[in-house]
């Protein structure tokens, strides 16, 4: 069945609509032996995924997976529900920062200690879908859908967040920006699951922010978005910065020149203009049902400026 559901909830990015599935592809009967499993450990989940010969899908919040299944874009033979794995439900404060389990919902994250340290990340995650969706959706699910328009990802990338991946082999940790390789594609191998996300510990005088543009006030996919994370020195000068953009390229972009434009400044107007210009220059979107090239390119700069101001203020800058 063909419809736009693949792109629902930020699953993929319309400019790269390469999914020209045959509208009535032959898959007579579909999967006849579909199974639902809810293992209680990560190890068991990995084993299930490794053993499955057909297609498997990981169910965290399900707010993307069920939409894809309804649209007929995916017909898994095995659904592995990870919500009954205790480790995946936890938010831990560690020596190096925070660890957020893969099955932590938006609401749980919003109520957690992470909010104070990483307000931009939590706000981004809490923008996904509706209040109803917030009761279910997860940052890891949002990331693994590999949509360039995913709300939490630019904020995570700006934050320098890492994904902890478990699988049949050794546990590995990679930067969030390395998870998605293309719309709807990730660098995960068969049997691998993202178990959690690591957010670094906050130094003093640090702040982050995320803003997206949507035509309505709620319930939309980002047409363009920006995440900014800054650390200031004692004088209020930006000494570290990371700027990420969403929905302007096949994957979320970490824009080094944009960060460079504001490092060493107190975010004066000139720095802001340079930031906006660097962001716009990094964009390579195309026209689609949600926005135009022109619009995305321009508004990427506008949002980056606005997000930078909020992040700067949160870091204590004046």
């Amino acid at each position: 069945m063909d419809d736009n559901r693949l792109f629902a909830k930020g699953l993929a990015f319309p400019p790269f609509e390469k999914s020209k599935r045959e509208p009535h592809a032959s898959n007579p009967g579909g999967s006849r032996f579909m199974r639902y499993e809810a293992p209680s450990s990560t190890k068991a989940a990995v084993t299930l995924l490794m053993k499955e010969k057909g297609k498997s899908a990981i169910l965290a919040g399900g707010t993307d997976l069920l939409v894809r299944m309804k649209g007929g874009f995916i017909e898994p033979d095995l659904i592995v529900d990870i919500k009954r794995i205790p480790a995946m439900r936890e938010i831990k404060k560690t020596a190096s920062g925070f660890q957020v389990g893969a099955a932590v919902s938006g609401n749980e994250l919003g109520r957690s200690v992470v909010k104070k340290a990483w307000p931009g990340v939590v706000e981004a995650a809490n923008l996904i879908g509706s209040k109803q969706v917030q009761g279910r959706c997860t940052m890891v699910g949002n990331m693994c859908n590999a949509s360039p328009a995913a709300d939490s990802v630019p904020a995570l990338v700006a934050a320098g967040a890492q994904a902890v991946i478990v699988g049949p082999k050794k546990k590995r940790t990679i930067p969030v920006e390395k998870v998605s390789t293309a719309p709807g594609r990730t660098s995960l191998a068969k049997g691998e699951i993202v178990e959690s996300l690591l957010l670094p510990k906050r130094p003093p005088r640090s702040g982050d922010a995320y803003l997206r543009f949507i035509p309505r006030s709620e319930m939309d996919i980002a047409v363009v978005s920006a995440g900014v994370n800054v650390v200031l020195d004692a004088k209020g000068v930006i000494k570290e910065a990371r700027v990420a953009l969403g929905a302007v390229a096949p994957t979320v972009l970490l824009v080094a020149p944009a960060a460079k434009a504001i490092i060493g400044t107190k975010l004066d107007d000139e720095a802001l203009d340079k930031l906006a210009a660097a962001c716009s220059a990094a964009c390579s979107p195309i026209d689609d049902k949600r926005g135009t090239i022109e619009f995305r390119t321009k508004v990427a700069g506008v949002l980056a400026k606005r997000a930078a101001k909020i992040a700067y203020q949160r870091a204590g800058g004046k």
Binding site: Y36, A38, L59, G61, G62, T63, L66, V67, K70, I79, D81, K83, S105, N107, S130, K131, Q132, V133, G135, R136
Partner: peptide, 19 residues
């Protein structure tokens, strides 16, 4: 299709019966 599941507001169309 809103319902609550263990007290959380959710869309029941985005929850599997098996869950």
């Amino acid at each position: 299709c809103s319902i609550t599941l263990d007290g959380e507001l959710v869309c029941s169309c985005l929850v599997l019966g098996a869950e």
